[in-house]
Amino acid sequence: MAEIIVLEGRHVLLQPLKHSHIKGLIEAANENPSIFKWTYVPQDEPSMTKYVDRAIECRDLGIAYPFVIVGKKDNQIKGTTRYWNIEKWEWPSGHPLDRAAKLDVCEIGHTWLRENAIRTAINTETKLLLLTNLFENWNALRVCFRTDVRNKRSQAAIERIGGKFEGILRADRMAIDYTIRDSCKYSILFSEWPHVKENLLKLLQ
């Protein structure tokens, strides 16, 4: 995860998260904080600095890769997302799946967008870029998504792009409101990627 990864589309640019992005992220987070009902989004500089510090630490450990999301039309920071829970399995030498893969499985999460980017091409193309890189460049076998069981909008968005519902993880983590959160888990497999990609391209059009 030490390499510099930049993913670029027509509408959005995904760049490795840096401390220099903190000011823009705070501005994005404060455009309308009320929309972040189910997702932790820091609002002030100390909290955002801690958030970025932790994301970069996870990248250095090889278990995550965080991006800042930048709109190409206005060069404005729209939010952030990351690959996380990255796993590279140890296949026996000569095994059919002992391939030139960056990773085997991971999750896409810690995703949030400022209000002016919600329900725009920004989110759809961000997912297209992340998934294309995972399946076509890194040869991933599976990617997962998790969301609060109460977050119906997020569940609908994951299903819209082709995520398959796997079940509910009970008492999965502490929720943003300091309750015990149940999470809905979704996945996309490598074999499903061509259909998912076709669907995403249609949605962008």
Rank of each mutant, 00 (worst) to 15 (best):
S47F: 06
S47W: 06
M48V: 12
M48T: 15
M48F: 10
M48R: 09
T49W: 14
K50A: 13
Y51M: 13
Y51G: 11
Y51S: 13
V52I: 15
V52A: 06
V52S: 06
V52L: 13
D53V: 10
R54G: 14
A55P: 03
A55F: 10
A55N: 02
A55G: 03
E57R: 10
C58P: 02
C58A: 14
R59E: 07
R59H: 12
R59P: 00
D60S: 12
L61I: 00
L61D: 15
G62Y: 09
A64N: 02
A64S: 14
A64G: 08
A64H: 05
Y65R: 03
Y65Q: 14
P66I: 06
F67C: 05
F67V: 01
V68Q: 11
I69N: 15
I69C: 07
V70S: 09
V70I: 08
G71Q: 14
G71R: 04
K72T: 05
K72S: 02
K72G: 03
D74E: 08
D74T: 11
N75W: 02
N75R: 12
N75T: 04
Q76Y: 14
Q76H: 15
Q76P: 05
Q76M: 09
I77F: 05
I77P: 03
K78I: 00
K78R: 02
K78T: 00
T80H: 03
T80G: 04
T80N: 04
T81D: 13
T81A: 08
Y83D: 01
W84K: 01
W84G: 02
W84P: 01
N85H: 15
N85T: 02
I86S: 01
I86L: 01
E90K: 06
W91T: 00
P92Y: 12
P92S: 11
P92M: 07
